[in-house]
Amino acid sequence: MSKDRLSASRRLDVALALVSQGDYVAAIDVARAALAADGEWDEAHFTLGDIFERAGETENAVEAFRQYLILDPVDRMGAEVRLTLLGAAAMRDRLPPDYVKALFDDYAPRFEISLRDRLAYRGPELLLEAVRAHLSSATGPVEVLDLGCGTGLVGEVFAGYFEAIDGIDLSPRMINRARAKGMYRTLVAGDITDMPAEIGNDYSFVIAADVLNYLGDLAPALRAAHARMKPGGLMAFSLEHGEAFPFDLGPGQRFRHHQRAISEWLVECGFELISDELGVLRQEKGNPVEGRIMVARATDGLSQLAGKLISQSDPDQASGQTLH
């Protein structure tokens, strides 16, 4: 089959315009015409799947997303996530890193306006309230590691409470936005489950604001954070609350975690839970999104062993504090 990417692109633009008008039947016809012009264009298969899903044609959506994955196995556009939400793929323990990177690279220019002005996001403020007393009473220099630092919102909110702050994020474009603010000592584009050598290993505070939601299994990220912390250091993080154990994937394409699973991961990875509160992280489609604001202390090996023994003998005691 001959390929005509320019013609396919023009037809796909028309299909998207029809979607914005709510004419899914016509949009499907035009998107199929785009694929007739270039059947090897992965983005066109994904867009057709999205239109099918909007039109309620689930089986056709599944087929289109699967065709996309054949052409783009690294899944930059997140077809596997869509298949999972449609019940056509097994749930993985994290979102595809290439998808998350591409998502936030594209999102970077409008990230803060979207979160602050449209979604009323206040995760960093809630985390600061959770650890303010500990920050104020800290002895010696306070060095902070900001996991999933994005454009540097944590650095702005925590300004005045630290001597140095380092950040890591999958998205280089988000990192560039944070660097322009001039608050971070070190900024690295990397994975929080496998942190590069540029990240230090003696932090008294680790902050993870709205980043662990992109992981199902939290153990790799918690272990990586613990390895970079001082004994007794604190980790503060936000999570969306879930009823399914250990986690499920919400319609917003973020993981929701069960409280008992979180507590078990913390013990397994060498943390002692200090506080666990509920708070409204942001608005989504006009509705408040409630999340957990948690603070945990990095313990030494003996404390970790004791925690495991408690977990084995008394599951209720290991499950963390009662929510308020």
Rank of each mutant, 00 (worst) to 15 (best):
A88P: 12
Y203T: 02
R32Q: 14
G233F: 02
N201E: 00
Q317M: 10
D23N: 15
A130I: 11
E243I: 02
P141R: 12
D23P: 06
R76L: 15
V211C: 15
D300F: 00
W265H: 12
G152I: 10
M195E: 14
E53W: 01
F46S: 02
K101F: 10
A120K: 06
I51V: 13
D316V: 12
R54T: 06
E264W: 11
L115M: 13
S136N: 04
Q304N: 03
A36F: 09
S319M: 10
G252L: 11
A244N: 03
A31C: 06
E57Y: 04
V74N: 00
I310Y: 01
M77N: 13
V154S: 13
N287C: 06
S311D: 14
A225Q: 03
A64M: 00
P246N: 04
G307W: 07
D248I: 01
E143R: 08
L69D: 01
A44W: 08
G200C: 02
M91Y: 03
V188W: 02
V30G: 09
R10A: 12
V100P: 13
L273F: 05
P141G: 04
G233Q: 05
H241E: 14
P231F: 09
G155N: 02
S137R: 10
E112Q: 03
K181R: 10
F247I: 11
E264S: 13
P251V: 03
C269W: 08
A261K: 05
Q304D: 06
E290P: 02
D191F: 00
D50L: 09
D23C: 04
L83Y: 02
D191A: 01
A8R: 09
D98Y: 08
G216P: 14
A120N: 10
M235K: 01
D42K: 06
D72T: 04
R54W: 09
R54N: 04
Q67A: 15
F245H: 14
G123F: 08
A102N: 15
M229Y: 04
L85H: 08
G307C: 10
P109S: 06
R292S: 11
L126H: 11
L145W: 07
G270K: 05
L135M: 04
L266D: 11
I113R: 01
R179S: 13
P109K: 03
L323N: 10
R118F: 07
K181C: 07
G152Y: 09
G252Y: 11
K181M: 07
C149Y: 05
P288R: 03
E63S: 11
A219N: 15
F237L: 15
A88Y: 03
D194L: 04
G286V: 15
